[in-house]
């Protein structure tokens, strides 16, 4: 038993943390809001230079062959920075899914480009009302009627919607399945398994991002409590504020180990029977912690936190959207229940 990341994994985290602190400050997130683009192209290019976009593809496909444990802390940092680009969909979910089940032509068209940072991938699972990032992705992987389709951007019928998080371009996609786009998984069981793993990766990777968002909102609130003075002293000297923030930290820190445990289970899914339940536990706690800290951080900030001028809402709105994405708390709790409760 050893529950800790390796030196290399921590080093990669530090690299990405430094890169995002320089390249993706709140102003950059705001410009994605203003442009409604969901993109921070210069940041994405830097991440690609650092190898992040190639992490999850195998070495045979020109990637780095890294696993969920390598990716976990990178995703968390992306959450902390509020990176608008689809790191979850492109790197954690789309690239490995396309590599696993795409046709030779599909892989040739998109994998190298994705690894190089030149192509984004969107994913739409059955029942998902919106496909985020579809408008900026080169290809959308859509699960429809039990089959999976890799649909190029120019053939995708998009009906853009407005997200509460304006840096998230979401769209309704009314796609009529077209055999030309179908992937080639061999048989149905193999495809179902691949899509199942992809969904678990999406829910888990979103949990990692939520952890980062949670930490950012808590950092903002703690800093504000130290700086803001009322009654002649910092508001953070008041027990009411201390207790709010202590509770927020507990929620965050008790979500973290479940998210990391799920990373391990996904990376070892051949031998871990319950990896789906582990992912769901992670998503329940990460989503609940993020929503809790979003409320606490706003309360600690008071009225200034209730403005567009302040950065808090950038992270708060992302957290609300992601808490419900790829299975909300009710969905994932039910999945844990199915694995643990008597029928």
């Amino acid at each position: 038993m050893r529950f800790a990341f390796t030196e290399d994994q921590l080093l990669l985290r530090d690299t990405v943390r430094g890169l995002l602190a320089r390249e993706c400050p709140p102003d950059v997130v705001r410009s994605a809001w203003e442009a409604r683009s969901g993109r921070a192209p210069s940041v994405w290019a830097k991440l690609a230079e650092a190898g992040v976009t190639a992490m999850t593809l195998s070495e045979a496909s020109g990637g780095l062959g890294m696993d969920e444990l390598d990716l976990a802390l990178v995703l968390e940092e992306a959450g902390y920075a509020g990176l608008p680009d689809p790191l979850v969909e492109t790197v954690a979910v789309g690239a490995p899914l396309l590599e696993a089940v795409g046709t030779a032509a599909q892989k040739e068209r998109w994998l190298d480009a994705a690894a190089a940072g030149d192509a984004l991938i969107a994913v739409g699972f059955e029942g998902q009302p919106f496909v985020p990032h579809a408008a900026v992705a080169a290809v959308a992987l859509l699960h429809r009627g039990g089959d999976l389709y890799a649909v190029p951007r120019e053939e995708l019928p998009l009906e853009p919607q407005v997200s509460v998080d304006r840096s998230r371009p979401i769209a309704r996609v009314d796609y009529a399945p077209d055999a030309r786009h179908r992937v080639d998984a061999g048989d149905r069981a193999a495809l179902d398994a691949a899509v199942g793993v992809a969904f678990d990766r999406a829910a888990w990777a979103t949990s990692c991002v939520l952890l980062g968002l949670t930490r950012r909102m808590l950092d903002l609130a703690v800093q504000y409590a130290k700086d803001r003075e009322q009654f002649g002293k910092p508001i953070g000297a008041q027990q009411a504020i201390k207790h709010h923030l202590a509770t927020a930290l507990i929620r965050q820190e008790l979500a973290r180990p479940l998210v990391y445990r799920a990373a391990w289970s996904l990376a070892h899914r051949d031998s871990v029977r319950d990896h789906g339940a582990h992912v769901s536990m992670a998503k329940v706690h990460a989503a609940n912690a993020a929503r809790h800290v979003a409320k606490t951080a706003l309360q600690v900030h008071g009225a200034i936190g209730y403005t567009i001028e302040h950065d808090l809402h950038l992270f708060q709105k992302r957290a609300w959207a992601l808490a419900a994405m790829y299975g909300d708390v009710g969905f994932h709790r039910a999945r844990v229940g199915a694995a643990t409760l008597p029928d």
Binding site: F3, L254, L258, Y260, H285, R333, V336, G337, T340
Partner: peptide, 21 residues
Amino acid sequence: VIDAWIDAEAYRWYTFQTVTH
């Protein structure tokens, strides 16, 4: 009931993390 189960799991893994440290 499910939340209670998840909480116990969270505490278990939190502890394994602490002990590793």
